[in-house]
Amino acid sequence: MAGTEEIQQPTSEIAFQSKFRWSDMIRVDGRINLRGCLLLVTGILMLVNLYMIFMVAPTDAVLGHVQRIFYFHVPLAIVSFVAFLAVFIASIAYVFRRETKWDNLAHASAEIGVVFITLALVTGMIWAKPVWNAWWLWTPRLTTTLILWLIYVAYLMIRSYAPSPSKAAIYGAAMGIIGFADVVVVYFSVQWWPGIHPTPVVGPLADTGSLDGTMRSVLLFSMLTFLALLTYLIMERMALQDTVDQLRGIRFSLRRAARQDAIPGD
């Protein structure tokens, strides 16, 4: 019986939020809704970004319209690196502080980072097929990106196979640290790897120098947009994790209450 009072309070809060109002995006309960604001800003940025990419940016003289996928591909790749850097920093912070918020940040960043890097790989392949006439070339940059993908998929696997959430957190932190350190080493080792022949690759950094002014500003705007999207998604994912943790707590106290009801003498 002791658990019943504890669980009534959250139920009423959940019911209260069922009706959606636009004003809730900006302010909830007299406080500024940071996530809602970011969602609005990101949404507007995304729309403007689409307009910029398809209407403002000039069509590439050699590659034609297929070049426009670059405004998605490059920001996705760079933003996923930002996400993995966040995993690394949050993992180190978790190891030293042992606070759940750092683990949630690492987990959320890794998940969003994997989604973004998958999209970057896919858009890269779509771009490569007409331009290089191959879906894939084993260049240092592509190889490193693929290894990066494998490492963070392994990160997510290690978390979901771990026996308990606390173990998942510490194993995740271990993989987050060693994975990021490894990426640097992988990059250099495949750079010196003579298996691939140095082809003139149109990489993100090499490319910006040869871009014309409008193209470069569209690219920068797109990067900003995707950075906003990353930040919003990470915040949303962390909030979701908070809800999951709360629900787990409620279920735990419900089970305990039910067990106490079942055993009268306890």
Binding site: A162, Y171, S189
Partner: peptide
């Protein structure tokens, strides 16, 4: 030491090990 604590450890170890050991 990590994978022995997890479910399906025989699969997890190569998945963790090979990308990291690549250099």
């Amino acid at each position: 030491a990590i994978s022995v604590q997890t479910r399906s450890r025989e699969i997890l170890l190569p998945v963790l090990f090979f990308p990291v050991i690549l250099p």
